[in-house]
């Protein structure tokens, strides 16, 4: 069975949009962060779909390779991001981004 790349791309577009909406409307830092991960993974899906459409061509490999890099970078972002969120939770007892806003002007 062969799934056309257009279907995969549509799914990836929907996931990306969900991620963007999540970042914009959610107020919990961890949920915002999850939405960002969703955006990155929707891009991975798009890479794979395009790589598949290009398939026998050697350039398709660049899409596969990119996905691995995105996964690795997302993991390192998680490490830094969660450490930050934990540090903030310790001092504020909350990770609501609306409560972390004293800087204004």
């Amino acid at each position: 069975m062969n799934i056309p790349p257009a279907y995969v791309l549509t799914l990836s577009g929907i996931l990306f949009a969900l991620g963007v909406i999540g970042v914009l409307i959610r107020r919990n830092a961890i949920v915002i962060f999850m939405s960002i991960e969703l955006m990155l993974n929707s891009a991975n899906l798009a890479f794979i779909a395009f790589a598949r459409a290009l398939a026998p061509a050697q350039e398709a490999l660049r899409g596969h390779v990119f996905v691995f890099f995105v996964i690795a970078v997302a993991a390192s972002e998680v490490a830094v991001g969660l450490a930050l969120i934990v540090a903030i939770f310790r001092s504020k007892e909350s990770i609501d981004v609306d409560e972390v806003s004293s800087l204004r002007g």
Binding site: I36, M39, A43, A46, V80, L84, S91, V100, L103
Partner: peptide
């Protein structure tokens, strides 16, 4: 803390756009 959280969340958000 606030500076880092804002920078991190918006920076990662921007990376999402860049990758897509």
């Amino acid at each position: 803390e606030e500076s880092a959280l804002k920078y991190f969340l918006l920076g990662a958000f921007a990376s999402g756009f860049l990758v897509y």
